[in-house]
């Protein structure tokens, strides 16, 4: 894993946009087809993890990811409560759709940042030389 092969680097570089596109597709289309926030978020996290395989030394900003995860968590709690209590009488079809997609999106980003934090924390901080 220490010396990077040219083939893997180039092929993963080509594949990044497609994996990203697939992850966002799973998230956004989650209410109608199999998939959803968690699965799409895991696919998105796989992008970061394969990036570690390509060049292990490139640093990633864990601090911003951590704050992003916290903010997303607060959003995930706040958005359903506002949605439930604000418009009590009428929930139209369109509003429900937007609500589902937005929640899937938030959960996907949260899962992605969570997985990435777990992985990079494990790689860079835990263990080491015994």
């Amino acid at each position: 894993m220490t010396d990077n092969s040219e083939i893997i680097t180039r092929m993963t570089g080509l594949l990044y946009p497609f994996i990203l596109l697939f992850g966002f597709y799973i998230i956004i289309n989650g209410h109608a087809s199999p998939g959803g926030g968690f699965q799409g978020g895991a696919v998105l996290a796989a992008v970061f993890i394969t990036r570690y395989l390509v060049d292990p030394n490139r640093c990633i900003q864990l601090k911003t990811l951590k704050t992003a995860e916290k903010i997303l968590f607060v959003c995930i709690i706040l958005y359903p409560t506002f949605f439930l209590f604000s418009t009590s009488a009428s929930h139209t079809e369109l509003m429900n759709l937007i609500y589902l997609i937005a929640m899937n999106f938030l959960i996907g980003l949260k899962v992605c940042s969570g997985f990435t934090i777990i992985f990079f924390r494990f790689v860079f901080y835990e263990g080491g030389i015994l």
Binding site: Q39, F119, F122
Partner: peptide, 29 residues
């Protein structure tokens, strides 16, 4: 169960395999 299948494919195949490989690399002392 396509939902579970996607989750298993991503987590079981990609993430845990890479995690185990990294752990093995740290074990080579």
């Amino acid at each position: 169960a396509p939902d579970v299948a996607i989750a298993e494919a991503v987590i079981g195949t990609t993430i845990t395999t890479v995690l185990y490989l990294v752990a093995l690399k740290k074990y080579q002392v």
